[in-house]
Amino acid sequence: MKIHLIKNFIPIKDLFEAKWLYTTKRMLNQLIGLYTREIKNTYRNPAIIIVSIFQPLLWIVFFGSSFSSAPKLFLESFFHTNNYIAFLLSGQLSASMLFVGMFSSLSLIQDKKSGYLRRIMVTPTRNYIIFLAKVLGASSRGMLQVPIVLVGVILLGVTMPTPLGLIAFIVALFLLSLGLSSIYLLITMKSSDWQIPTVVSNFINLPLMFSSTALFPKDNFPPWMQMISNLNPVSYSATFGREIIISGNTIHINWIYLFYLLIFASGMILIGMFTAARTLKME
C-alpha cells in the first residue's frame, strides 16, 4: 500500500522512461492555469481587494492609535519603541494572514459546491496540483495588502525600511500565509460544509492572534502562553517584521525566524500535498 502511494505521488516510472520532461511541463502548465484562475477571480471582485486592504489598515489606525498619547517612557519600556503603530504593523499584517488562510478554504468549498473541482478532476490534473494552486492563489491575494498598508502606515510616522528589509518582510509574510492557507485547506479537504472554516477560524484565529507577539510583547505573558507564543508561527513573522520596521534595516535582525517560517511553510505544504493526493474528493 505504501509503495503504491509513493508511486502514485511521484511518477517514478516516468522518470526512468524519460517522460519526466513532459510530465513536469504538464504539471507546470496545470499549475499556471489554475493559479491564474485564482488570481483573475480576485481581480474580478474589487470587494475582496478593498476589504483585504482596509481590514488591517483599520486595525492599525484604530487599535494602533489607542496608545498614541501614552507616556513615552511607558511605550519605551513596554514595547521598546515610542511609536506603537510601528510595533503593531508587522503583527497586524501577520495576524491578517490568518484570515487569508480562511478565504483559501472557502474558495475550495466554492469550487466543490459549484462542481468546478469535478471539472478539474476529470482532467489529468493531480490532486496536489489543485492544492498547490489554491495555496499559492490565497497567499498571493494576501500579499496584495502589504504595499498599500505600508504606504498608509508611513503617513502615520513609520519610516520606510530598506529594500532588502522590505523584501525580507514580504517573504516572511508570504511563507506564513502559505503555511496557514495549507492548514485551512487541510481542514476542508474532505468536507464541503461552509460552516467549518468559519467555525474553525473563530476557534483558532483569536487564540493564535493573542498568543502571538502580534499585538503585545511576550515578556509579560504567563509562562504557558509564552510557550504557545514560542511555537506560534504568527509570532515568528510578527517579531521578524517588527525588527525590520523598527530599525528600518536588516543589520541587526535575527534571520532564524525566517528559517523557522520556511520550515513551517514547507512542512505544511508537504503535508497538504500528501493529504490532497489521498483524500481530496467531491462528495
Binding site: G33, R37, K40, N41, S114, R118, P124
Partner: peptide, 21 residues
C-alpha cells in the same frame, strides 16, 4: 453546466487547455 462564471469564454477555454497541457 459547470464553468467559471466570472471569466469570459476564452478564459474558460484557456484554463481547460492548460489543464490538458
Amino acid at each position: 453546466v459547470i464553468l467559471d462564471d466570472s471569466l469570459t469564454s476564452m478564459e474558460n477555454i484557456w484554463i481547460q487547455s492548460k489543464l490538458h497541457s
